[in-house]
Nucleic acid binder design. Structure first.
Length: 816
RNA sequence: GCCAGAGUGGUGAAAUCGGCAAACACGCACGACUCAAAAUCGUGUGCCUUACGGCUUGCGGGUUCAAUUCCCGCCUCUGGCACCA
């Protein structure tokens, strides 16, 4: 039994004393030899570390330690994303100040993380809730404000009834709060926004330049939701008014039979008093406006609408199209008005059905159907050939789209436009535990930014946190003792705080220069370390955090603070670790594994290796308390196989361990390649294969070879199980840390086999195998194959119709 | 509904520019050591079959000398989006 506790404590203490993992920008180390390996920093919850945390941290730690052994200068920091609602809610429940509980949680997290032996540079630790940090978060707000990328407006916003605050669009999941799953309603409020939409196209373009999982890129693309179409303007018959619709399907415009506008659209507001059907319209609009956007979007609602009394003229064919108002059309999408083509759009079809509107077929059905469209199944949306469409007849829809778009533009009836689903980022929160928004309101001067030199705007302590729907800061007495920076008169501060995603959008820069008091980070240090070479974390941040951080990066690039505009060159998502029962780990299910218990019982090295051995890094994997025993046995075996003192003699014949030497080189190759591609599970399997073989042969080895094998193996093991590797390394007479030693290199000539095994198949079924020289010619291999005893038995009395030989791999005889 | 990703032994999984399916590990069984147990070591372990052999990568087709891998259709699960015009 190896004593993991004393070994692990010993080395963790030594690494800390020697400050082994602290790095600085060194002029003599060129930029190409530096790497920045980053974990998504944790939210220090009261529950403490979860086994999911060390999964990602172990992977980046293995990778960082490996890179150092390959001679790289590695920045690998850790910090705390410590502002946010859960801390505040916890504080309310427990009757403590969120600062107190958060600081305590950080202590726990730090201790737990340090117990696992990660090679973080702790001198760079950051905490987003500390004034030294949030001072710069506030600076970023001013940065956006000055660049005209932050603005305040009154808008319908999403409001969580339980958290009692507004949420970003990204934080509303299926009409519910992403955090607490409570109902989200809509409110009209004056709020601060970041103009992320200005970067929509660049956020889309940039995805093509980065090495991220395709699934994440796709999610971001969908979220940005670029759609290219045409804004077509129709005149209203008998008036001087026009209505402009946005459509991505101008090709079906010969099939247009009505126009629908959103009840809250500018068109309705402008023309309200002019509609001939005034009374009906007023009634419908009033009831529609009482519903929230979320209610209007509720699934399965029967579409309703009201006729305005107006007709729009379709210039293409002179058709008079009735203009309706309906709440299935949203003012926030496109122009807030759509042209109804009920034959080829399911929503338009449903609307036409309930209101008994005309339906015209303009695309031939997939099965050649050209009958009139009366059933939803006949509504063909995405492919086909045009019909009943004048000059477009016979064209495939995409060609028709090109032609008619040109035609519409040439006639001045409309023009090409691009729309995005992405909305501006709502950053105000009506809660306490966040960075105050650095704005001052003066009765005479209006809104003014807090001067940079007055930052930070400190969070006051004379506050009652109980959520009332109003920011707790509103009722602080000390907080609002402020003078207008313009006229000097007594003013009030903005009392909302910033969304915590603002804090986490720029932390990667701060790590390069965490103590800087005059800038968020110096340009020189950012230029040296950034961008982040490898970023690892959970896929739950696919859209929000990762999109916001990319937006910040592009804004900084435009302001010439940095020379790159994508913050994370490579991204890898870790898979979820689920409970032994196959369910997601949660307190209520009682299936939570506490890493502290695992470290205490099995050791940090064992926890690290087990988490890596469980399965592919990016897949979800269930925890197995029995499975971890296998890793413990492996470490135990390694510990016993290595001599405690460095002088023991061995006797043996060279020929006996040639195969072991070959296996060593294969192992070096496999482990090296697997670390680089984050396939830690198979790297560990390979190490086990080596150790199993080594165990069988070790008594026959001479001292020189014994040392060769153990030394090289320990180097491979070191990034995975750093404590035991350091310990055994020091016991074999080394005084320097194993991590100061170069990573072993394999030699291709040791790996190549002189003789190879070729499988012999008959009709595709393996029936035997032959050993041949690597470069044996085909006729020789075939004759060897035929003379194989078992093969010959199967071939006896049968006619071989065909012989296949794939060099060095396989022989296949095809028989009748 | 739409878009991704995944389905392989009792379990976690391995092998996919087509070439011996199940490496490595867990578990289980038997054996050694032990008074005994644990630990450790050894042997075995996809399914059917006494054996010869046959069958097997969610289901059904196809291409190929050869398919877990490629193509077509379906089923299930996970994640994301959801009246975006």
């Amino acid at each position: 039994m190896y004593d993991h506790k004393s070994i692990e404590q010993k080395w963790q203490k030594l690494w800390a004393e020697r400050r082994s993992y602290e790095v600085v920008e060194e002029d003599e180390i060129p930029r190409k030899n530096r790497r920045y390996v980053l974990d998504m920093f944790p939210y220090p919850s009261a529950a403490g570390l979860h086994v999911g945390h060390p999964e990602g941290y172990t992977a980046t730690d293995i990778y960082s330690r490996y890179l150092r052994m390959r001679g790289y200068h590695v920045l690998h920091p850790m910090g705390w994303d410590s502002f946010g609602l859960p801390a505040e809610n916890y504080a309310i429940k427990e009757g403590v100040h969120p600062r107190e509980s958060t600081w305590k949680n950080i202590e726990t997290f730090r201790r737990q993380i340090q117990d696992i032996g990660f090679s973080y540079d702790w001198s760079r630790e950051i905490n987003t809730a500390s004034p030294e940090y949030y001072r710069w978060t506030q600076w970023f707000f001013l940065f956006f404000y000055k660049r005209n990328l932050a603005y305040r407006k009154k808008a319908p916003v999403n409001w969580c009834v339980s958290c009692q605050t507004v949420l970003a669009r990204e934080q509303v999941v299926q009409g519910r709060c992403e955090r607490c799953k409570s109902e989200v309603i809509q409110k009209e409020l004056e709020q601060w926004f970041f103009k992320i939409t200005e970067y929509a196209d660049r956020l889309l373009q940039g995805l093509d330049t980065i090495d991220w999982p395709e699934s994440i890129k796709l999610m971001q693309r969908n979220w940005i939701g670029k759609s290219e179409g045409v804004n077509i303007t129709y005149t209203i018959d008998g008036t001087d008014k026009t209505v402009t619709v946005f459509t991505t399907r101008p090709d079906t415009n010969f099939g247009a039979t009505f126009i629908t506008v959103a009840p809250d659209s500018s068109f309705v507001k402008e023309c309200f008093t002019l509609f001939p059907e005034q009374a009906n319209v007023a009634k419908y609009v009033e009831s529609a406006l009482r519903k929230t956007e979320l209610e209007r979007m509720a699934e399965g609602r029967v579409k309703t609408g009201v006729f305005t009394g107006w007709y729009a003229i379709n210039q293409l064919n002179g058709k008079r199209m009735p203009v309706y108002i309906s709440d299935f059309v949203f003012s926030t999408v496109g122009t807030g008005a759509v042209v109804g083509v009920p034959g080829h759009d399911l929503r338009d079809f449903e609307f036409a059905q309930t209101l008994n509107l005309e339906i015209i077929r303009v695309v031939v059905g997939e099965d050649g159907d050209i009958s009139s469209i009366t059933r939803a199944e006949q509504v063909q949306e995405e492919k086909g050939v045009m019909i009943n469409s004048g000059f477009l007849d016979g064209l495939e829809i995409n060609r028709a789209k090109d032609q008619i778009t040109k035609y519409i533009e040439e006639n001045g009836w409309g023009k090409r436009v691009t729309n995005y689903k992405l909305r501006d980022w709502l950053i105000s929160r009506q809660r306490y535990w966040g960075a105050p928004i650095p704005i001052i309101y003066c009765d005479s001067c209006g809104e003014a930014p807090v001067p940079e030199e007055s930052l930070p705007v400190l969070l006051p302590d004379d506050v009652d946190f109980l959520p009332t729907g109003e920011s707790p800061l509103v009722r602080s007495k000390s907080f609002h003792k402020v003078l207008c920076p313009k006229c000097g008169r007594a003013s009030r501060r903005e009392s909302d705080t910033l969304d915590t995603f603002v804090c986490s959008s720029w932390y990667l820069y701060r790590y390069t220069d965490p103590k800087n008091t005059s800038e968020f980070a110096s340009k020189k240090k950012m230029a040296y370390w950034l961008p982040v070479d490898l970023y690892v974390g959970g896929a739950e941040h696919a859209v929000m955090h990762l999109l916001y951080a990319r937006f910040f990066c592009k804004a900084l690039y435009d302001a010439k603070y940095i020379t790159f505009d994508e913050p994370f060159t490579k991204l890898i998502n870790q898979g979820l670790i689920i409970g032994e029962d196959g369910q997601k780990m949660s307190k209520s299910r009682g299936n939570v594994i506490n890493p502290d218990d695992v470290v205490s019982e099995y050791g940090a090295d064992c926890l690290r290796m087990y988490e890596m051995f469980m399965g592919p890094f990016e897949d979800a994997k269930p925890w197995s308390t029995q499975g971890i025993n296998g890793i413990r046995r492996f470490l135990e075996k390694v510990y016993i196989l290595f001599p405690k003192s460095n002088h023991e003699s061995f006797h043996g014949q060279i020929s006996k361990f040639q195969r072991l030497e070959q296996l060593l080189h294969k192992t070096i190759k496999k482990v090296t390649e697997d670390i680089e591609s984050f396939k830690f599970n198979t790297a560990i399997s390979q190490m086990m294969i080596f150790i199993n073989e080594f165990q069988k042969q070790k008594d026959d080895l001479d001292t020189v070879h014994y040392k060769l094998f153990t030394t090289n193996f320990l180097l491979l093991l070191a990034p995975f199980a750093p404590h035991i590797a350091e310990e055994l390394w020091s016991r074999t007479g080394h005084t320097a840390s194993i991590f100061k030693t170069n990573w072993p290199l394999y030699k291709e000539e040791f790996i190549k086999d002189e003789t190879i095994t070729v499988v012999v198949q008959i009709n595709g079924k393996a029936r035997g195998e032959v050993n041949i020289a690597r470069d044996a010619d085909q006729s020789f291999v075939l004759s060897e194959a035929r003379s194989n005893e078992r093969v010959a038995k199967f071939l006896a009395g049968k006619e071989v119709k065909r012989e296949v030989y794939v060099k060095g791999k396989i022989v296949n005889f095809v028989v009748a």
